[in-house]
Simulated assay, not measured.
Amino acid sequence: MPSKTTLKDLANLAGVSVSTVSKALNDSPEIGLKTRVRIKEIAESCNYIPNNIARSLKSKSTKTIGVVIPAILLEFFSKVLYGIEIEATKRGYKLIICLSNEKQKKESESIDTFINGSVDGIILSLAEETQRLKSYAHLDKVSKYNVPMVMFDRVTKDVFCDTVTIDDFECSYEATSFLADHGSKHIAFVNPISNISVGQLRCEGYLKALKDRNLKPLIIDVDHYNQIEKDLTRTLKEQKIDGVVCADEYSAILTINVARLNGFDVPNDIAVIGFTNGLMSEHSIPSLTVVSQHAENIGKKAVELLIDRLEGKLVSDPVHEVIHTHIIERNSTKKLN
């Protein structure tokens, strides 16, 4: 394997000092335009790649953000990641992205990778296993090494850092109230994410909305999406249901399918509302009414918070940003007369 071209190699080829090459590649006005162009052409012809590690040691900044997300296949996290990338690029930062795949061990390994100086700060959404076990010791290392961190969506008060969330309790309260206001009186809650903070808060919001209307709750907790068909089918045969609040987008799509498979019309027999405004929601049959979480805005705000923290613009106490949501009404719910 051929060795990498160094600044010294470029300096020898250009007949200038290493300092001149470095300044030229960084567009320093100290170097004349003609010389800068010539050195850049030589660097390009030699396939020169800057040594970012050496550069970061000198500047004490990598201009890189580490991101840890639980899953990439869920559209919510894809949209958040898109927002992160847009804002990071705008602010001159690169990304290193790791997937925890909902495992605490993989999340911890990602943190270990980042705190060695490869990034300036971290953006993280907690893995399901981390929240279920309430195991946050690996995150204590982040503050120990003075690496700024922003948590989004799945967060915990047990870790001292900035956060970006929606008000999951209030959003679920509003979603449940929306169904009740549109005529549903027997509203179930399908929850495949009861082990994580957002699922718990959404369940609490659902319960409060029913309590305020003297309606009886019916909670269908499942450990995995593949249980929804069996458990919901059994419940539909045993209980009267005319509305369903689902804790996320995928469970809402499955709920629509199960209801229709069992001979129910959506929304005339059973109205359904979910979370996250993704492509599945828009193109399901019928199209899904959702609480839009503005995932892209969550990603952008996380980057803004992190960079503001890096630049010393925030107070010492953690900042908690709440992204406003709204309901997008589609065909899975009844229209008001």
Score class of each variant (00 low, 15 high):
T130F: 04
Q131L: 09
Q131V: 09
R132D: 07
R132A: 07
L133P: 00
Y136D: 01
H138E: 04
H138F: 10
D140L: 11
V142W: 04
K144L: 02
V147K: 09
M149L: 11
M151G: 11
F152N: 02
D153P: 01
R154D: 10
V155G: 05
T156G: 03
T156R: 02
T156P: 01
V159N: 03
F160S: 00
C161Q: 09
C161S: 11
D162C: 10
D162T: 13
T163S: 06
T163K: 09
V164G: 01
V164L: 03
I166D: 02
I166K: 05
I166V: 15
D167T: 12
D167V: 13
D168F: 03
E170L: 13
E170C: 08
C171Y: 00
S172A: 15
S172H: 04
Y173D: 08
Y173S: 12
Y173R: 13
Y173F: 15
Y173W: 11
A175L: 05
A175Y: 00
T176D: 06
S177Q: 07
S177Y: 01
F178G: 14
A180S: 14
D181L: 07
H182L: 08
H182Y: 10
G183L: 06
G183I: 05
G183C: 05
G183Y: 12
G183E: 10
G183R: 09
S184E: 14
I187A: 07
V190L: 13
V190N: 08
N191H: 08
P192D: 06
P192F: 12
P192Q: 07
P192S: 12
S194P: 06
S197Q: 14
S197M: 11
V198T: 15
G199F: 03
G199W: 02
C203Y: 01
E204H: 01
E204I: 01
G205H: 00
A209N: 05
A209H: 03
K211F: 00
D212A: 11
D212C: 11
R213H: 00
N214E: 02
L215K: 07
P217G: 09
P217I: 04
P217A: 06
I219F: 15
I219D: 14
